[in-house]
Design a protein around this nucleic acid. Sequence first.
DNA 1: ACGCCGCGTTACGTTAACGTAAGCGTAAAT
DNA 2: ATTTACGCTTACGTTAACGTAACGCGGCGT
Lengths: 143, 143
Amino acid sequence: MYAELDETELFLMTETYMTIREMCDAFDVTPRTLRFYEAKELLFPERRGTKRLFTRRDRARLKLILRGKRFGFSLEDIRQLLDLYDPNKDNKEQMMRAYELGLQRLADLEARRTELEDIIADLKANLEWGAQFLSAPKAAAAG
Amino acid sequence: MYAELDETELFLMTETYMTIREMCDAFDVTPRTLRFYEAKELLFPERRGTKRLFTRRDRARLKLILRGKRFGFSLEDIRQLLDLYDPNKDNKEQMMRAYELGLQRLADLEARRTELEDIIADLKANLEWGAQFLSAPKAAAAG
DNA sequence: ACGCCGCGTTACGTTAACGTAAGCGTAAAT
DNA sequence: ATTTACGCTTACGTTAACGTAACGCGGCGT
């Protein structure tokens, strides 16, 4: 089993604690970024003395954070979304709100997907037109 | 014809020139934003005296700008992309580069689409799990 | 013992993408 | 003839998301 995972992923799953440097290497971020995310309450590494120890939970959250960023979400947006994936099982009230927010987000994402489809279709058409134009012998430039 | 277009879209297509205020109302942006985009050479409104007159071309570009922003592209990224949709037909060299860049972008977008599919699937699964949890009579909380 | 990492904190610097305020010109309304 | 409204320019302010610099502490290789 785990045949489909590469070394890094396996490492990320099994290693319970990771230092800040290991995190940086694994996720290609700077120490500053990780400390910043902690300050903004997106990550909650434990402390051994003064040093940070990042848990499996932190890794999962960071993965989602970086994902969200690629799609243009702000860190504050992401912070809200994270509670969805890491629900507070003790507070039914808060879970309900997280759930509602999740439904909203899902709708957003699906709208976004269709828009993305449109963009891709547009760009494809445009490129095909450009290709034809570029391959034309010369007279194609005339209107 | 044009039966599928609403009033606003029809207006945007037929009206050759638009004032800054009309643009703001039509696209829900501030004047500052439009002037800023002009300063950054994303838009090129003409001038009647001192006032700006936005053309059909400007509208098309603005639409793409706002689209790009929703997907987390920087204005600088977008500026490059715009040349794709508004090609310089006189410069074959530049068109070639735009075309190559377009292919690259297309690959990016398609990668992005699959990632978006994943995110949606994840979120859906998560929400279904949450729904079941929330609807459970009470004992579901036990391990 | 000494020097050097690697991590930590504090704090100031930076860039993008506008917001906001001041001051001027002009056109329409009263 | 004002007032009101909109538009222009110039310029300083703001927020997010880090970068970077200064300085201290604890381990450890020689």
